[in-house]
Each structure stands twice: as C-alpha cells, then as structure tokens.
Amino acid sequence: MTAATLVLRALHHGERHMERQLAAVAEHHRAEHEIHHVATDLARWSDEHAERIAEASRAYGLDLRGGTDDRPGEGLLAAVREKAAEALGHRPEPGLLLLRDLRTLHLAATENSLYWEMLAQYAQAAADDRLLALSSACHPQTLRQLRWTNTMIKTVSPQILTSL
C-alpha cells in the first residue's frame, strides 16, 4: 500500500463519515432551519467528495465504491447511549446537543481538511496532476464546512452557555 492509497482511503472514510454526521445533524435539528438546510447542503458536498475520491482511487488499485469502513455498531452504540441517558433523566438540553454536534462536525471537517492538505502535498511532490486537481477541487468546500461549523459555534454558544 502506497502513501497515496493510505491518504485516499482515510479521506474517503472521513468524507463518508462527515456526510453521515451532517445528515444526522440536519435531521436532529430540523427545527433550526439554518442548521437543517445548510447541513443538508454540506452533506451533499461530502458525498460528492467521496464519489470523486472513489473514482480517482481506482487508478491506484483501490476499490472504494459504495463501501464504508465504519466501525460496526457505531450508530447503534450512539442510540443506546442516548436512550440510556433519557431513561436516567440525564438528557442534555437541545442547545447543548447542538453545541456538541457542531463541535463533532468541526473536528471531522478539520481532520478531512488535513487529509486534503496531505493529499495535495503528496500530489505536488509526486507530480500527480490527477490528485492535485482532486484536492484543489474538493478542499475549498471542506474549508467552507469548517468555517460554517466555526461560525455556528460562535453564534449559538453565547446564548446557550449563558442560559444554563
């Protein structure tokens, strides 16, 4: 396995993970229209990124189509934790849940951004125009996801945290 394939695989996983997280946040915070609509749009970007990564990966002997390499049961464990917290009466306020979700999205976008940067650096060093074009096309959208989560955290945290 080459350095390029390692980064492509990690990036594909990260974009699929980001897509699912954004879709879940959009659904959980449906009443917050800006959150719902923007997260839905940003999830489409991650889906497009993952598709483009899978397509580019074939040239390096990787088959990433349709597959996700998530840990089995990850969603199930989250649901069990949430139900257990409800039953015990420790369910956080919706505002705190929103802040937690935005923080999680921000960290995922940061990780993806780092992988895009590593891919671009590899592509430059290896004179790989295909990977450089892929990174140049997708990384700016990941940076936009990162800026959106940061802006939303700055916007909602003062009101949520001072109302506790």
Rank of each mutant, 00 (worst) to 15 (best):
Q141I: 06
V25R: 02
H36T: 05
A120H: 08
R44V: 08
Q21W: 12
L131D: 09
A4G: 08
P158S: 12
L161N: 11
A125F: 10
A56K: 07
V38W: 01
E74I: 09
R9P: 00
T162H: 13
L96I: 05
S163I: 00
L164F: 15
A31T: 02
P72K: 00
D63F: 01
R71G: 08
C138M: 15
E15N: 10
R147V: 05
L119Q: 08
A3H: 12
A3E: 15
L119M: 13
L132F: 11
A24I: 03
A78Q: 07
E27W: 12
R58G: 06
R100T: 04
H12K: 07
R20W: 03
L22Q: 05
A26S: 12
I53H: 10
T155L: 13
A43C: 04
S135C: 09
A23R: 01
A109M: 02
L161Y: 15
S135K: 04
R91S: 12
A59L: 03
E19F: 03
E117H: 11
Q121I: 09
R65C: 11
W45K: 01
S46Q: 12
L77R: 14
T151M: 13
A3Y: 11
D47V: 07
L146C: 02
V80D: 00
H28L: 08
T5S: 13
A24Y: 01
T149L: 08
R130I: 01
H36W: 08
R9D: 15
K154V: 10
P94Q: 06
A24K: 07
H139K: 10
E86H: 11
A87N: 12
S163G: 13
L114F: 01
E55T: 13
R81V: 05
T2I: 03
T142M: 05
C138I: 04
R130F: 00
A125W: 04
V156P: 00
T40W: 07
L102R: 01
S157N: 14
